[in-house]
Write a protein that binds this DNA or RNA. Structure first.
Lengths: 352, 352
DNA sequence: CTGAAAGCGCTTACAG
DNA sequence: CTGAAAGCGCTTACAG
């Protein structure tokens, strides 16, 4: 910073009063004489005073910044979740320290340390890949901490998740309902708990509905390679008639691969994804997807963190938000091209 | 934070030395006796010492955090740009303060203030919507500042952009080369400089190639409405044979709308977007798009900022990165479904 | 309602 | 190579 900052002392000197009074005008205005306050505020404005967040944070031992960490910034769901958190945080005067772990557990650890070294008031972890055991230690560090889309077996910690189990069941039930008998599940990252939950729930639901379920591991593979592996299954498992993909991009890749093989969607194979991304409605056929209240997930995470920061001793809460099914042409027998309905476009309004 | 932090004094006391020495072990290790240093480092490790970033920043007047601002977190290009910045910043031990302006100029202003109040070492603004005049003031504030995808007419400021003019020309030339005579340009946000540059460059290129160009304003409209407006043009301008969209999502929306009207792509109408998003290759037909070196844009922005932070007096630099054309089925006459080539998949490697 | 003073955790000339 | 001391900008009991 080239120019020297205006401090509370500059204002105090200019007005011939004490720095303490100036400080009070900002922190506890009710303690100071209205006229004085008025003059201070005006002078501050004139002199371009801007409170030093570092000095403030140094005192309380806590800044008014929050730490936010994502496992991989490229996952399109995170934009909405982060958007929800950011908006809520901004409105409550919190700044956001941001880190992208790049699916790297060691980096998650380092980012956490960075957050702590900045004395953040709280931390929100979006589906961290760090194993439970270590996560326990983090919770022990004493920072208000909220987990999004990741549950812990042992430790007590505020958690906000989407009902992945319910979503996966719903997906399988939908596929069964449209007459599908054998589903391929294209798995997501091993480290993603949502992946495990969905796979397991899908397996159970499939068993209950007497539908076959085969899981294809795609750990670390780009979507195009995933599609190729899917194609290999065509020889191996020629009888499958539905694909359920961990996310919409993978679903789209699968549709593309299937189409290239001359397989009709949804007549021969139905395809369903997760996340209900905005461009899903524009594919051919439009993609059926399991939608999640992403923005709200972010907002609730912030609320949970706020509660925790205010009353650290309160019981940890676990909040599970319901998702919902958005049926489009990739699973709907009658898949005539049509305008998307308002409900599909603005999925927020569909939330139960 | 529930537990009290270990400070430099705790270590000093434990070892019977001064805090200054402990501090030096971290900041200027070469100044301190090797044996002492060793003991300090060990003790620090044991006691779980973590330097307080706020205290450090308070001293120099500058923290080692950077401020990053985006106009709208939902734009998929930003994930790559931010990813590039984050990675570079992380490797150079900078934390990131993040803000999403939500296309709101007032919020941009407030976020900037927040960054300053945290004494950030520098700020990167991704295509800010704030008018030139005010941006000048910001530059006057003296913080190292880098603009991404936004140029300033008057002020001198480090800038990293993609060659939007060249990209738009390239797009028009490509459309002309495949025999198109009349292009509809679906415009992006008014506040986005890239939009203005592209529209103007497209206009010029169109004139040079004797191709018609008609701009459809879509300010503030969701993609679906944009598509509807596009459809209205079908009656109004039945002769257009190409659509150039501000981004891939809009291009996709256009393709969807055209297809729904029974118009063949690319035979009757060619469609081209900007950004080359990952899912563009999966549409039907796969989407031709103007690609940008997004991650590199972020990396160069960080480098520019770093240079500015180290030598504040140096001449401002303007860096223009070239983009490139990725031809796919939506503009290629022979649009038989096919596997995407390696070059299309990993567009990074295609960069000139 | 206001001021003097101590302190948050760290760094850095200044002496030794 | 090491320590005592001052200071970064602000807040907050403690007196008045």
């Amino acid at each position: 910073m080239a120019k020297k900052q205006t401090t509370i002392y500059d204002i105090a000197t200019a007005l011939g009063i004490s720095a303490a009074t100036v400080s009070r005008c900002f922190r506890s205005p009710e303690l100071v004489n209205a006229a004085t306050r008025q003059r201070v505020l005006e002078t501050a404005e004139q002199m371009g005073y801007r409170p030093n967040g570092l000095a403030r944070g140094l005192i309380g031992g806590t800044s008014s910044a929050l730490g936010i960490m994502v496992p991989d910034i490229h996952n399109p769901s995170f934009a909405d979740i982060i958007g929800g958190i950011e908006e809520a945080a901004y409105q409550n005067d919190f700044a956001l320290l941001f880190g992208n772990a790049q699916e790297n557990v060691a980096k998650e650890q380092r980012l956490f340390e960075v957050f702590l070294s900045y004395q953040v008031a709280g931390i929100i972890l979006l589906s961290p890949r760090t194993p439970d055991l270590e996560l326990q230690h983090w919770i022990g560090a004493g920072v208000p901490l909220v987990l999004v889309n990741r549950r812990l077996t042992l430790a007590r910690c505020d958690v906000v998740t989407v009902d992945h189990v319910g979503l996966a069941r719903m997906a399988v039930e939908h596929l069964a309902a449209v007459g599908r008998r054998s589903i391929l599940y294209l798995a997501g990252p091993h480290g993603a708990q949502a992946n495990q939950l969905r796979a397991e729930a899908a397996r159970q639901a499939a068993a209950e509905h007497q539908v076959g379920l085969h899981v294809i591991d795609t750990e670390g593979l780009p979507v195009t390679v995933t599609s190729e592996r899917l194609m290999q299954q065509l020889d191996f498992l020629p009888q499958f008639d539905a694909v359920l993909a961990y996310n919409d991009l993978m679903a789209l890749g699968a549709m593309h691969a299937l189409t290239a093989q001359g397989i009709a969607i949804p007549e021969q194979v139905s395809v369903c994804g997760f996340d209900n991304v905005s461009w899903g409605e524009f594919s051919t056929p439009p993609l059926t997807s399991m939608a999640q209240p992403l923005k709200r997930l972010g907002e609730e995470a912030f609320s949970a963190l706020q509660r925790r920061m205010e009353t650290p001793s309160e019981q940890p809460l676990e909040m599970v938000l319901p998702g919902w099914l958005v049926v489009r042409g990739s699973t709907r027998p009658d898949s005539t091209p049509r305008r998307p309905t308002a409900g599909e476009r603005r999925s927020e309004s569909l939330r139960p």
